[in-house]
Design a binder for these strands. Structure first.
Lengths: 363, 363
DNA sequence: AAGCCTGTGGCAAGCGGTTGCCAAAAGTTG
DNA sequence: CAACTTTTGGCAACCGCTTGCCACAGGCTT
């Protein structure tokens, strides 16, 4: 008990005569006022307890309106911003969500990032962006290390195995994007119907020999696309080829283009636009005309797909919206609303955007 | 003194018979083990004080190697991850850096983000990405609100006034990118020499009438580019035009293209590639040939500039590297190394990348 | 007017680390 | 072997905020 009054007096003194004390306390005059104000400074200025300030800011209806106004004025005057760290310490929440993408470089993910950012901002949550470099180890590592710094995770095109995913989702809230999972809520692009649309398009242009240009083997959506491609093309009685895997970058396009030409296929469905654009460049360089000699269909409709040469026919999907939906699902998981069970799966519709990289089959 | 032994015994008891206590303490068997381990759990398991654990992890040479090994084993066994929040609370640091960009949508900033992310990750610092939507209010707001959640800021193409910038940099460490500032360290793209190179290029191709297609008036780099453009073009005795301002997006390209054509200029230097690509599309739609009828030079060499139609001649700059440099400068500011004063200005070299959107002047 | 609510706000105990200070232990030296 | 120095590691006071609990004041009821 002997200590308490003393410490109390000290804090009062600080508030009242901060300037006076500064002179002898700190060498630089500005040092004291520059130190960011704490809840205690606000409390002192408003003449209430820190707990009241805390409540006034968190649950305004829990305090008398007059008190609240006084506190708000005091906070405004001091330019007070509560420390999210301190806040998180006791609440256990960080008010941040980590978004893990395999490759920041890939424009596809930018749309996800943008969508997520948008929705997170609306909810007042901070986005932590992480590039996992297409590696499941880095992904697991980030998931582990950031356990304490994020309330939840959005895993874009996760490279984790089902078991890993299940394990992780047991301990931390997450939403997967473009990666089916029974253990966590998922946002998916409706790949199957998109591939079927694309094949339909090629078929209607008279193509009989088609080729799937594969992306990363660990990519779930790559597997799905190939599966549906094979089934549907076979059903249509087409000659089916497959080449790859290729890294989904424009630089891999050259190899992919050369391989595609060798198969003799006249129509290609490519894992994604990046690769497709790379192929376009190579084909042009080799004097193979698109679409006269070969038709190319990409996937994702990324930035650039509309102005490459020729503009790319591609599978469009509302990626940005998918990012928003993923965030919504995650936030729903974090703040369970009474009653309504949160959605476990969102499938985003796709459509084929026909531009100029597809045309009638040769002859 | 009466209290001490008691509290000590309690923590010991927890460590020894944690499992036993669980049965009656918590309703669900799993609740206890699932709660993330704290430093206290590690200390108990290793049989030392929490302070020792803290030190063993922070300054390994401060504890006996044997003790350290014991602690490390305990930490590993419990899968312990220190809470960055708690850590930050006492140290006052967050180990996070906020990167503010005017528009996440713009591929130009992707490279900055990527570069920054790369360097930050190397330093074990988290990146907080914020889109300020080209608004100085949002920028100020973010700067204010995140004061406590970030150790420093990187302001890409800041929209703040000099006074605002000076004010802000007085209280928080920051580095500006593409925005000159006397109050904060800056990373800049060497715009002047780039513009001169571009004009030189146009001049050598026989162009006499040139036009600057302006970007956002609040953009410092836009102002600089115009200034140098006007000076140097005038010096060369060229007919100088200026149109704009335009939003730096491909969608503004149509208006810009039409206006550019009306000026009668045969060569355009455009604020950035986004706008330039938009112009390319419009010109093509109108049947105006590039470069036969008009030459276009963009700026930034963003993703897509190499595969648009025609591929864009543009001012390339090591943007990603600029992002890395910006982070380095910020980190240097945050952890001042004894002696060496940190660099206040970095100017990134630029060069003209000549592709196919520029050619001899008509006739 | 006594007895009850109810609304309001203070107290103090954490949340999970860090760190200055100090005592005990270990190592050195003459 | 005593005296002294250096390590080593524990104690406890924070860091800034939240929150359960409780006391008190004022308005109501009867």
């Amino acid at each position: 008990m002997a200590v308490r009054p003393a410490s109390k007096e000290r804090s009062t003194a600080m508030a009242d005569q901060g300037a006076a004390e500064t002179a002898k306390g700190a060498p630089t005059r500005d040092a004291r006022p520059d130190r960011p104000p704490t809840i205690r400074d606000v409390a002192a200025l408003a003449g209430v307890a820190t707990s009241t300030v805390s409540r006034a800011l968190a649950r305004p209806d829990r305090v008398n309106p007059r008190t609240r106004v006084r506190i708000e004025e005091a906070a405004a005057e001091l330019n007070y911003v509560p420390s999210s760290q301190a806040r998180g310490l006791s609440s256990g929440r960080t008010n941040a969500v980590a978004v893990l993408v395999p490759d920041i470089t890939n424009p596809f993910y930018f749309d996800i990032i943008r969508g997520a950012q948008h929705q997170l901002k609306a909810a007042g949550v901070t986005q932590l962006l992480v590039d996992t470099e297409e590696s499941s180890e880095m992904e697991l590592d980030a998931l582990h290390k950031m356990r304490k710094s994020a309330d939840g995770f959005i895993l874009a095109a996760s490279r984790l195995t089902d078991a890993q995913l299940a394990e992780v989702s047991r301990t931390q809230p997450l939403v997967t994007f473009n990666r089916a999972s029974t253990s966590a809520p998922t946002v998916m692009i409706d790949t199957p119907s998109a591939i079927i649309q694309a094949l339909e398009h090629l078929a209607s242009l008279g193509h009989h020999k088609v080729c799937y240009v594969a992306g990363p083997p660990t990519s779930w959506s790559n597997q799905m696309r190939w599966k549906v491609f094979e089934e549907d093309a076979t059903r249509r009685g087409m000659e089916v080829h497959r080449i790859g895997p290729y890294t989904p970058k424009t630089t891999s396009g050259a190899a992919a283009a050369d391989a595609a030409v060798r198969t003799g296929a006249t129509g290609c469905i490519v894992f994604n636009d990046l690769l497709a654009i790379g192929m376009l460049q190579r084909l042009q360089a080799r004097g193979i005309r698109v679409p006269a000699d070969m038709s190319i269909i990409g996937s994702d409709d990324i930035f650039g797909a509309d102005f490459c040469n020729p503009p790319l026919t591609t599978i469009s999907s509302p990626i940005e919206q998918a990012g928003r939906v993923a965030v919504s699902m995650l936030l729903a998981q974090l703040n369970p609303l009474s009653g309504s069970a949160s959605r476990q799966l969102a499938v985003m519709p796709t459509h084929l955007t026909i531009r100029e990289s597809t045309g009638p089959a040769p002859q």
